[in-house]
Design a protein around this nucleic acid. Structure first.
Lengths: 144, 144
DNA sequence: CTCGGTGCAAACTCTTTGCATTGAC
DNA sequence: GTCAATGCAAAGAGTTTGCACCGAG
């Protein structure tokens, strides 16, 4: 992600809407859906149409400013800032909470070894299980 | 997955549509979308409505007969038979081909070690990169 | 001034739901 | 015969597209 000295991604026209999206992503502590982004922006001074959010996000992803994730839990996409961290998520099977995992169990792995016929450039790992809260409540409500 | 001696999942009413879905899943070499399943069935003797496919698949997933996967590439869901194998997929970033990976780089890992506050029960790993064909053609058409 | 970005509406895809009929047991 | 499963229609969520107007450079 190339940035101008001012912190704005290079080569992108600076509009109010784009600044809003970027600002929301910067403040986010978890991946956000397009709709969440739009409503968070709505709370600020600026309004934005959902289609614009999608267009801005598409641009950000193409420019490597943001990263798109689809958690297997639901079919909708989540977006977060590309902080160039290598990290993964754990998803609670009960309450669908998303927990960040900082260490990557694959970090020592030379990815290219996995398959001769396939050149691996990246990976995505999701863990499933039960978060602290749901673990304590145990099996309750698993049948939602 | 509990089965009757005849190979039919126990406790499920045996209808033509369900047998068709199961048959298609058994013959599949890759995860199929609901629509693919429906059209494959259409080629056989039996017709099935898309909503029925979804209902059958939902049932199969609940009964652990099938497994639902959402590849990050697209937002739609794919289904495959639960063969109780532990495997992952590699997705080609160019042609979106899905390649099965038999070895799991996490197999030696004790999953519970990852986070004290989160009880891991499973994981999903997706690899990204370029398949043999697209690797040879190199960067061409990456800008699709 | 120019051309890309945005507001807005409408279309589109995938999935779910409601209800009457059908068919498995 | 009973009740769950299915056909069918229609709704719903998330996302994309088309077009005219607006505003950043």
């Amino acid at each position: 992600m190339k940035e101008t000295p001012s912190g704005w991604p290079a080569g992108l026209k600076k509009t109010k809407q784009r600044q809003c999206v970027l600002s929301v992503l910067e403040q986010a502590e978890k991946p956000l859906s397009a709709m969440e982004i739009a409503s968070l922006i709505g709370k600020e001074d600026c309004t934005i149409w959902l289609s614009t959010v999608y267009r801005v996000l598409e641009l950000f992803v193409k420019e490597n400013v943001a990263v798109k994730t689809v958690l297997s839990d639901s079919e909708k996409a989540f977006y977060e800032l590309n902080r160039n961290e290598h990290k993964h998520y754990a998803v609670c099977l009960n309450c669908h909470k998303v927990v960040k995992i900082d260490s990557c169990p694959l970090k020592d792995l030379a990815p290219q070894q996995i398959d001769e016929d396939f050149q691996i450039t990246g990976h995505k790992l999701e863990m499933y299980g039960y978060c602290k809260d749901c673990k304590e409540k145990d099996g309750a409500a698993k049948e939602k």
